[in-house]
Measured scan of single mutants.
Amino acid sequence: SFQYVPVQLQGGAPWGFTLKGGLEHCEPLTVSKIEDGGKAALSQKMRTGDELVNINGTPLYGSRQEALILIKGSFRILKLIVRRRN
């Protein structure tokens, strides 16, 4: 089963996490790295392996390109929903 975790990061880029996968690579869009001391790490809500399913209220369909555009369009606040295996 899965758990959906809301994450809100503040203060602008860099957000402190790296993505891998996506439709382009025929795999889920997941968090591959969280930078020590970065905003994602400080939130204590994101983990490597989390799947990104929503950015700023926009549902994602797995495209890494789409996710990067939405993330780049976030100035002060980035709201994410990640899906994690229980």
Rank of each mutant, 00 (worst) to 15 (best):
L52M: 00
D36K: 10
I81P: 05
H25G: 13
G57K: 03
P59G: 07
K33T: 13
L60A: 06
I77P: 04
K20S: 14
L19Q: 01
T58Y: 10
R47Q: 13
E27Y: 05
S1P: 08
S1K: 14
T48A: 12
L19I: 09
G22T: 01
E66F: 07
P59R: 10
G21F: 05
G38F: 02
L9W: 00
A41L: 06
E51L: 02
K45H: 11
A13E: 12
T58S: 08
A67D: 05
E51A: 00
T58D: 01
L42G: 10
F17E: 04
M46P: 07
T30F: 03
L78K: 00
V31E: 02
N56D: 08
E51N: 03
R84K: 09
E66H: 12
R84M: 00
I34W: 02
E51H: 07
N56H: 00
S63A: 08
V7A: 05
G12I: 02
L19D: 00
N86D: 10
L29G: 01
T30P: 03
S63P: 03
G22N: 03
K72V: 04
L80P: 01
A40K: 00
Q10H: 12
K39F: 05
L52V: 14
G12P: 09
H25N: 14
Q65S: 13
Q3H: 14
R76M: 08
L60M: 08
P6S: 14
N86Q: 15
K39V: 08
A41Y: 12
K20F: 07
G12D: 07
I71D: 01
V31F: 03
G21E: 04
E24S: 08
Q8N: 12
G21N: 06
G38H: 02
A40W: 02
L60S: 01
A40V: 03
I77T: 15
I71Q: 01
G16Q: 08
L78A: 01
G49D: 09
E66V: 07
P6R: 14
D36N: 09
K79P: 00
I34G: 03
L19A: 04
R64N: 08
N86L: 10
L29C: 05
S43N: 12
I81L: 14
T30L: 11
T18K: 12
F17Q: 06
G57S: 06
L68K: 13
R47T: 09
W15C: 03
G38Q: 01
K45N: 08
K33C: 12
C26A: 13
L68R: 12
T48D: 14
I55T: 01
L9R: 03
L52K: 03
E27S: 10
F2N: 08
K72H: 11
L29K: 03
S1M: 08
F17P: 04
E24K: 09
L68N: 13
R84H: 06
V82M: 08
G22V: 04
D50C: 00
F75I: 12
Y61W: 10
R47W: 07
I69V: 13
G62K: 01
V31Q: 00
W15S: 07
K79A: 07
I71S: 04
L70P: 06
L80A: 04
T58F: 08
S43L: 04
S32G: 15
L68M: 14
G38M: 00
P6L: 11
R64C: 09
G37C: 08
V5I: 15
Q65A: 12
S43K: 15
R76G: 10
R85T: 10
V5N: 01
L70K: 11
L80V: 09
Y4W: 04
K39T: 08
A67S: 05
G38D: 01
G21R: 00
S32C: 15
T18H: 13
E66M: 08
T58V: 13
M46K: 01
I77G: 11
R83H: 00
L23A: 15
T18I: 09
I34L: 10
E24P: 10
S1A: 07
L42K: 12
L78P: 04
Y4M: 09
Q8P: 02
E24V: 06
